[in-house]
């Protein structure tokens, strides 16, 4: 049972991570590889606030998400102003730099990891409660992002991706929009981090390394970029497949490389055979049924 709970929680967290990453790179058109590091900032922020700062866990988790959000604004503001390409460069620096910092300072537990993180639930509580909480938050996150992308805001995101100059010349502020998209996406990654920390109660920097970016990208690409259900499907498939591999009884030394090959292979196969992913998003923006209905009255 414990094992199934663990899988369910990791899946739900991956759904939050993949959906928010899809929001940033798919809908926002913002090329970043730093998603895992904002996941880490939320996790470490929340864990340290609760463990060393005495903040109740229930408050520490949203606080961790806010710290990740604030950090993402600091990253996005200077780079997005210059041009979109600088965000990629900035995100590489942040991903490598912050992780290196976490490994090397004392108060994060260093490379050995952060231990003794307080749990959210009192000892003895059925872990199914935590599963329900994490799944509920994953569903809410997905619904929020879906709602945004189908609103006038989503329409504006679509126009901004189409043509940023024309967008600006119509009075729309592309820089503010990119910063907001990045902040919300990274804030949700931070939320997932806090939820991870107070269940597993141990954090190691290696969990948040650049390989995680590759895994998240795989979920989004394989599932279907710019669709609501694509990243969910991607997150589930990519959680189940590596687990299935462990049942193959391979020598332990082969497991890691096998998973790496699996991720890379999947991305390549999909790029060539089905670039739109399992669930293809249309090339034309569609609003909410209500808005479409409104439009229909003309």
């Amino acid at each position: 049972m414990e094992y199934l709970y663990t899988i369910a929680i990791l899946m739900a967290l991956n759904v939050i991570l993949a959906s928010s990453f899809n929001f940033v790179i798919g809908y926002g058109g913002l090329i970043s590889i730093a998603h895992p590091v904002f996941y880490a900032i939320g996790a470490y922020g929340s864990a340290l606030l609760a463990r060393d700062g005495g903040v109740p866990v229930l408050l520490a988790i949203p606080a961790g998400a806010l710290i990740a959000l604030a950090a993402s604004v600091l990253v996005a503001l200077p780079s997005v102003r210059i041009s979109g390409d600088y965000l990629l460069i900035g995100s590489i620096g942040v991903q490598l730099g912050i992780l290196e910092a976490i490994k090397n300072v004392g108060w994060t537990g260093g490379a050995g990891g952060l231990t003794n993180i307080p749990a959210l639930l009192r000892p003895g509580t059925d872990h199914g409660v935590y599963v329900a909480l994490v799944v509920a938050l994953a569903v809410l996150s997905v619904l929020l992002l879906h709602w945004i992308t189908r609103s006038g805001y989503g329409r504006a995101m679509s126009a901004m991706r189409d043509d940023e100059l024309a967008f600006a010349a119509l009075g729309r502020n592309a820089v503010a929009m990119k910063v907001a998209i990045f902040a919300l996406g990274c804030g949700l990654a931070g939320l997932a981090g806090g939820l991870y920390a107070h269940y597993f109660r141990f954090l190691a920097p290696a969990q948040f390394d650049i390989l995680q970016s590759a895994a998240l990208l795989t979920m989004v690409v394989v599932g279907g970029m710019r669709s609501t259900f694509g990243p969910i499907l991607g997150a589930i498939v990519l959680e189940v497949l590596p687990q299935a591999i462990t049942f193959l009884d391979l020598p332990a030394g082969l497991l890691g490389p096998m998973q790496g090959i699996l991720f890379t292979g999947l991305v390549l196969v999909f790029m060539f055979i089905r670039p739109q992913g399992l669930i293809a998003a249309g090339s034309v923006w569609r609003g909410r049924a209500l808005e479409e209905g409104h439009a229909g009255q003309s």
Binding site: D162, G287, S298
Partner: peptide, 8 residues
């Protein structure tokens, strides 16, 4: 904007 209808 090719991804949007005329109205949008």
């Amino acid at each position: 904007f090719p991804s949007l209808s005329v109205l949008y």
